[in-house]
Every structure is written in C-alpha cells, then in structure tokens.
Amino acid sequence: MSNSATVSSKTWAGGRSPFSVSYGKLMMWVFLLSDAFTFSSLLVGYGAIRFSYSGSSTPWPDPSAIFNHFPFAHGYYLPLLFVSLMTFILIFSSVTMVLAVEAGHRKSKAEVSKYMIYTIIGGAAFLGCQAWEWSQFIHEGGRLDTNNFGITAQGYEHLKEAGKFGNHFEWMAGDRQPGPVPFASLFFIVTGFHGFHVLSGVVINIIIWLNVIYGTYERRGHYEMVEKVGLYWHFVDLVWVFVFTFYYLI
C-alpha cells in the first residue's frame, strides 16, 4: 500500500469499474454484442442458403432487379434507389441521435429534446418506407412460404435490353418463374427482425424523450439515459449497413 501513490491514476486498482462506465451502459454494450451475433447468424445463414442455389434451375434472383420500385413512379425501373433513400433516412436519424447525446453532455434540455424529435421522425419515416416495400412485395405475391420472384434467362435478357435506370419497365410473360422460397422468407425475416428493432428503438426513444420533457434527467443531473438509447439506435443503423450490403448490393 505504501507505493500506491506511484501507481498512475489510469491503472485500475479496484473500487471502481475497470471499464470506466456505468453499469447500465456496460450492460447495453453487452446486449448489443449479443444482438450483433444474432444478426450475423441471420446474415451468414442468408449467405449460406443463397450460395447453395448457385447452379440451380431456379437460381437466386438479383435482389435489386426485384426491388426496383419507387413511390409515385410506378412502372419505372429504379433499382436500389428506394433502399438508398431508406439508408439516408437512417444515417440522418443517427446523426441527430448523436447530436442529442452531445447536447445531453452540455445538459441543454431544449436541444436534447429537439434532436430526439428529429430522430423519432427519422425512425418513423424509415418504418413507413419499410411498410411500403413490404406491401409492394406482398401485393406482387411474396409470402413467407411462397415466392414467384424467380427471373428466367429470358427475363434477364429483357432486363439487359430494357432495364436501364429510370426507364419504363414491366415484366413480360415468361420473364418470371417461381423462384427460391428462402428468397422471400429471408426477406421478411431479416428486414422484419431489423424493422422490429427500429420499432422498439422508436418506442424507447419516445419514452426517453418524454422523460427529457418532464425534466427527469435534469433532476438526476445527467443525461446518460439518452446515451444508452443512443447506443441502441446507432446499433440499429449499423445492422442496416450490413442488411443493405448483403441483401441489396450483393
């Protein structure tokens, strides 16, 4: 004990958390780590199933050739545009979330509230987009256990000729055939599981925002709850980065 004064203050000597964070924040990190494993299992499983269809008579369709719609532009071939918009919305809501956390560090109640409202609006907009995409897919016959979204060789030929970005494009008879069922099931499972996370994030954000408004954190002396829900919200954005990469780009 006599030489304890020579130990640098950065060296952990017991009596406090070696992680230098509160219990709640540490547990949020541990939860997010476990959630990262859940999502990576889903995406790796998706990859394995998709890979197993190479060389099949009903090949895995090009996802962006399927999801080529945009609201109010019916009949136009706009692959990737709508999911890119969804990505933009989520990135934007992520930056407003981190701005709310930063405002919380300065204990600026009004700013925390403002940025959290932006974040909630962003999350709701993302959910709206996802609902639209789901309803499109379901309307065209996609189900958990059925999938008529296979593309035939003729279909790809037609796509190559007429499927230029922004062109008017409709599938012709013989372009499509029943495709791999897991294509539809995994679309609903992966984007659904992510969407459910977004939904929970929006609900939790609203609860925390109400607490901000009521002055709970002002009385508590710190806005760490905003930080914790912020961690969750950024994680949801992080997962979308990989859903976007593996489901739509590849």
């Binding site: 981190v98 956390v101 930080e227 950024h234 980065v241 990989f242 990469t245």
Partner: peptide, 24 residues
C-alpha cells in the same frame, strides 16, 4: 469493405467506442 468502413465509423465515433477505456 465499404460496409466495414461504415461500421467502424458508426461504432467508433457515433457509439463513442473510440473514446472509451481500452478494456471496454
């Protein structure tokens, strides 16, 4: 690779992990 760059930026800066204790 671009997805991983995005992930590092989100986790490191937005989730503040770059500034946390080394152990964490």
């Amino acid at each position: 690779a671009l997805g991983l760059v995005k992930a590092v930026l989100i986790v490191g800066i937005f989730m503040h992990l770059n500034y946390e204790a080394k152990f964490l």
